[in-house]
């Protein structure tokens, strides 16, 4: 039995296979509409996350399965002090697969150690969020046709953003990838990403503070939110915040085929006027996330051979 804790749990070949399956699901949804008939997904969400939970639930329902679960810790037995290990043992008796989000890092790994059903990490604190990374990869591959030979701009809070760290970790495994890391100096990627991931894998990268100066070089721009509380002082925040807002003026400097991605929710870092630009792919990214989660559920339940 297999679980998914980190995006790197899958080899590049396994990931390619998962993304192929996700692409096939997109093309032939009817083929997969009953593959999970009679199966149940438990969504164990110890903290609220509308987007990820709904994506998992939609994925399971699209496959013909059904969903049980809870959407915050107060409505679960955790409020009575039950351990994650005990909860997963109980849930293993009710469901066939589980997606867990927990504010504490490593909670899904604890669950996986005691579970008799596959456990998917649906986000554990600031640690891992592998299905977001798989969603990002599926979006890039579907819209660009490849995961290699891309110049990728990552913009915003690169220090605390786990989606950015996971995406870098996943993309360095492909050929011809280079990064432009765009952030205020205070919010640059942590040392271990720079040294143990980028430098160690000989991946070219540049760290810059201005989005406008580099946007014209990029194949892909991955935006994240710059939060006020991350800054040391208010003046610095006010001085910097507009530099990291993507608007029509900055988009005019970008290439015709550059894609804009964002893990969402956005606050104000992408102006609403950009939404109608054909290069804005962040809402399509949400749809790709459902296909990616459908493929993941099929693989972890070992149901690939059941496809007619």
């Amino acid at each position: 039995m297999r679980h998914l804790m980190s995006p790197l749990d899958f080899t590049v070949e396994e990931l390619d296979h998962l993304l192929d399956l996700a692409a096939d699901i997109e093309r032939h949804r009817e083929k997969y509409a009953h593959i999970c008939d009679g199966k149940k997904l438990a969504t164990l969400f110890y903290e609220p996350s509308t987007r990820t939970r709904l994506s998992f639930e939609a994925a399971m329902i699209n496959l013909g399965g059904s969903v049980i679960g809870f959407s915050n810790a107060n409505s679960s037995s955790a409020a009575k002090g039950e351990s994650v290990s005990d909860t997963i043992r109980m849930v293993s008796c009710y469901a066939d697969i589980c997606a867990m989000r927990h504010p504490k890092e490593g909670a899904p790994m604890v669950a996986a150690g005691k579970s008799s059903i596959p456990v998917i990490n649906a986000g554990d604190g600031g640690h891992q969020h592998p299905t977001q990374t798989i969603t990002d990869l599926h979006t890039i591959r579907s819209l660009k046709g490849r995961l290699s030979n891309l110049k990728i701009g990552l913009c915003g809070d690169l220090k605390f953003g786990r989606t950015v760290h996971s995406l870098i970790n996943a993309l360095v495994r492909y050929e011809g990838i280079s990064f432009v890391l765009i952030s205020p100096e205070e919010l640059r990627v942590p040392d271990y990403i720079r040294e143990d991931v980028l430098a160690k894998n000989h991946v070219p990268f540049r760290e810059v503070v201005s989005l406008e100066e580099v946007i014209g070089e990029l194949d892909l721009l991955y935006m994240t939110r710059v939060q006020r509380e991350r800054f040391f002082n208010e003046e610095e925040y006010i001085r910097m915040k507009d530099s990291y807002i993507l608007d029509a003026k900055k988009m005019a400097l970008a290439r015709e085929d550059m894609l804009v991605l964002h893990p969402l929710p956005r606050v104000n870092e992408i102006a609403v006027e950009v939404d109608n630009d054909p290069r804005a792919a962040y809402f399509r990214q949400v749809q790709y996330g459902v296909y990616a989660r459908m493929a993941l559920i099929i693989i972890l339940l070992g149901l690939e051979d059941s496809v007619c």
């Binding site: 351990s83 290990s85 927990h102 504490k104 890092e105 490593g106 909670a107 604890v110 554990d124 604190g125």
Partner: peptide, 21 residues
């Protein structure tokens, strides 16, 4: 010592460290 780690709230879990480098 990570306050966000699951071991910070579930006392019965063993504290396990893996040599990564």
């Amino acid at each position: 010592r990570n306050p966000r780690c699951i071991t910070s709230i579930e006392q019965e879990l063993p504290h396990i460290f893996i040599l990564t480098d």
